[in-house]
C-alpha cells in the first residue's frame, strides 16, 4: 500500500472558495451568486475582491438558478452557491428546465453535503443529491475528496462548457492530494494498485478508503483503490480495467445507496462484466444530529465498514 501523507486539515468548501477567488482573478466572465450563505460557502473573498461580479440573491434559490441560466445565456460563467440540499432538491425543476434541458453553462456548487454537516440534522443533510443530478441528461457530477482536489475541480469546471454539479462539504478533513494538481473531469485518480479487490470511492470517504487500504495491506490484501471524483461522466475504462484485474468491487460514498456512485458502478459492471459488489453508503435512511464522526460510524460510513465490505465481497468471488 502506497503511503499517503496528511498535509493539513481543511474543509473542502474552503477549497471551493480558494478556487473561486483564483477564477475571479483569471477569468473575467466568472460571476458568483449566493443565497444568503456567503460565509458558509467561503465566497467572502470573491465577494470582497469582485463585488461587481457577486450577486446576493437572498434566500431564494429558485430565482438564483433561473438568474444563473440567464447570466449564462448572456455569456457569463455563473457559479451558484448554497447548501447541497437547497442546490438540488429544492430547485430540481429549475435546474431541469432552465439549466440542463436548456444546455446552460451554469456551475451549481453545493456545500454541506451528506451526514458530515453534523449537528444541523437531516433537514440539511442531503444524501440524494448525486442521484438527482446524475439523472439529468448532460449534467456533469463531481464530488471531490479534499481541499486541494476541490480547489482544482472548481478551477477546471470553469473551462468546461456545460452544466456541472460540484458537491463538497463542511467539516475539516485530511488534505492529502497535491496542492497544484491538474484536475481532469471524468478521469479517475488511481491511488493504489492491487489485485485483490477494487475500491471505488468518492468525496470524504476517499480518506476512509485509504485508511481501509492500509489495514487491508497489513492483512495481506492489496486493494486497487480508485478515486472516482467525477461520478458523471464515469471513467468507465478505469473501472472496467480494475475489475477485470480484481474480480470484485467495493464502493464508498457519503450518499444514499440508491442513485449514488455505487449504483453507477453496479450498472456499468452489470452491463459489461458482472462481478460481486458491496456498497458502503447510506441504506435508505435519513440522517440525524450528531458530530460528523459519530454519524459516519452510526450510518456505516467508516473505515471499518469498508474493510468489512472488502471481506464480504472477496468471499463472494
Amino acid at each position: 500500500m502506497v503511503k499517503i501523507e496528511i498535509l493539513d486539515q481543511k474543509d473542502t468548501r474552503s477549497g471551493f472558495g480558494a478556487g473561486l477567488l483564483e477564477l475571479g482573478r483569471t477569468n473575467p466572465n466568472v460571476v458568483a451568486l449566493c443565497a444568503d450563505l456567503t460565509g458558509s460557502l467561503k465566497m467572502d473573498a470573491f465577494k470582497k475582491e469582485f463585488p461587481e461580479r457577486f450577486i446576493q440573491t437572498g434566500i431564494a434559490e429558485a430565482n438564483m438558478i433561473g438568474m444563473a441560466a440567464g447570466l449564462a445565456t448572456g455569456g457569463k460563467i455563473p457559479f451558484t452557491g448554497t447548501f447541497a440540499n437547497f442546490s438540488t432538491g429544492r430547485v430540481y425543476d429549475q435546474i431541469r428546465q432552465s439549466v440542463a434541458y436548456s444546455g446552460k453553462n451554469v456551475k451549481i456548487c453545493a456545500s454541506h453535503a451528506g451526514v458530515t454537516l453534523g449537528e444541523d440534522g437531516a433537514t440539511h443533510q442531503i444524501l440524494e443529491d448525486i442521484g438527482l443530478m446524475k439523472m439529468l441528461p448532460g449534467m456533469v457530477v463531481i464530488n471531490p475528496c479534499d481541499y486541494n482536489q476541490t480547489k482544482a475541480a472548481t478551477i477546471a469546471i470553469a473551462n468546461y462548457d456545460g452544466p456541472v454539479y460540484l458537491r463538497f462539504g463542511r467539516p475539516k478533513w485530511p488534505v492529502f492530494t497535491a496542492p497544484d494538481q491538474k484536475f481532469e473531469i471524468g478521469k479517475a485518480w488511481h491511488i493504489n494498485s492491487g489485485n485483490a479487490v477494487s475500491i471505488f470511492c468518492t468525496g470524504h470517504l476517499v480518506w476512509k478508503a485509504i485508511k481501509a487500504g492500509e489495514i487491508l495491506a497489513e492483512m495481506g490484501i492489496e486493494a486497487d483503490i480508485i478515486n472516482i471524483h467525477t461520478i458523471k461522466p464515469l471513467d468507465k475504462e478505469a473501472v472496467l480495467a480494475s475489475v477485470a484485474k480484481t474480480g470484485c468491487a467495493v464502493t464508498a460514498e457519503e450518499h444514499q445507496m440508491n442513485g449514488g456512485l455505487g449504483d453507477s458502478i453496479c450498472q456499468l459492471l452489470a452491463l459489461n462484466n458482472p462481478k460481486p459488489v458491496e456498497m458502503v453508503a447510506v441504506n435508505d435512511s435519513f440522517g440525524e444530529s450528531g458530530t460528523p464522526d459519530e454519524l459516519l460510524v452510526k450510518y456505516g460510513l467508516d473505515t471499518v465498514n469498508i474493510v468489512d465490505a472488502v471481506k464480504r465481497v472477496m468471499a463472494r468471488k
Binding site: 430565482n63 433561473g66 438568474m67 441560466a69 440567464g70 449564462a72 445565456t73 429549475q94 432552465s98
Partner: peptide, 13 residues
C-alpha cells in the same frame, strides 16, 4: 414561473 428569473439574469449580464 421561471422566465422572469432568466430574464433578470440576462438583464444583469
Amino acid at each position: 414561473g421561471q422566465g422572469l428569473s432568466v430574464a433578470t439574469g440576462i438583464a444583469l449580464s
